[in-house]
């Protein structure tokens, strides 16, 4: 009997997926970015999906991977926040606690060979401290001042490191936005499952703010010169 049969589940694959999530720490807190696309295989199926989600007063999670699993995560985190609120004792869950909880859920699901197929970034700001950490479908976690999931780990992370590392306490919100924008642009040019429509989340002492969708302006005139890209003349 296969392990999958023993555990009453079958090996799965993600169906409707989101691509990269980017995040960095800056002077006032944490910024996160993700585009609005949910793909169905290579088809750009949904172009108005929000992949950044606030959890409580201090935290944002951003998700790549299976979007239905992400919706399930949103649902149980909302339940968790409600339970915490209901105790009415002034104690609430910050980003570190939410990240720990998520990592426990993700690891327990992978151990049942039924993982939640996501890579998640958890960013937040509480009690004067910013928090940024990663967790994925295996329950793997790590933390850094810049993080990127999916293709962003290869395409955007080097740029983020160059721009941010060592300057976390100097970077202004404007500079952070500029860095995010340039990274999202690189991703839009090179990641075939991405979109030029994206959102930014900022988490500071003032709380959580998630922007309206923003548009990337790109130029494609160079494409004509690439053999095999456009209509061929010979």
């Amino acid at each position: 009997m296969s392990i999958a049969a023993q555990t009453d589940s079958c090996p799965r694959q993600p169906i409707v997926t989101g691509t990269s999530v980017l995040a960095l720490k800056y002077k006032d807190g944490v910024m996160m970015a993700a585009d609005n696309l949910a793909s169905y295989g290579s088809l750009a199926r949904f172009k108005d999906i929000q992949r950044l989600h606030p959890v409580g007063k201090y935290t944002v999670i951003g998700a790549g991977g299976d979007m239905s699993d992400f919706q399930y995560i949103q649902k149980f985190l909302e339940q968790l926040i409600i339970e915490e609120f209901t105790s009415q004792d002034g104690h609430d869950l910050g980003p570190a606690q939410i990240h720990e909880y998520l990592s426990q859920v993700m690891y327990s699901r992978r151990s049942k060979i039924n993982p939640l197929w996501n890579s998640l970034l958890v960013g937040g700001f509480k009690d004067g401290k910013s928090f940024l950490s990663y967790v994925d479908l295996l329950g793997t976690t790590y933390s850094a001042t810049t993080l990127a999931t999916g293709f962003g780990a290869y395409l955007a992370q080097p740029i983020l490191r160059k721009e941010v590392e060592g300057r976390e306490n100097e970077l202004t919100e404007e500079e952070a936005i500029r860095i995010m924008e340039s990274c999202m642009k690189v991703l839009y040019y090179r990641d075939a499952r991405s979109l030029d429509k994206y959102q930014l989340a900022v988490i500071t002492a003032d709380g959580v703010k998630i922007s309206e969708s923003r548009h990337l302006s790109t130029t494609w005139s160079f494409a004509e010169g690439i053999r095999g890209y456009g209509a061929q003349t010979q």
Partner: peptide, 10 residues
């Protein structure tokens, strides 16, 4: 579960 010392009142 939460990497948090349980609040004493709870």
């Amino acid at each position: 579960l939460f990497n948090r010392a349980i609040p004493v009142n709870r």
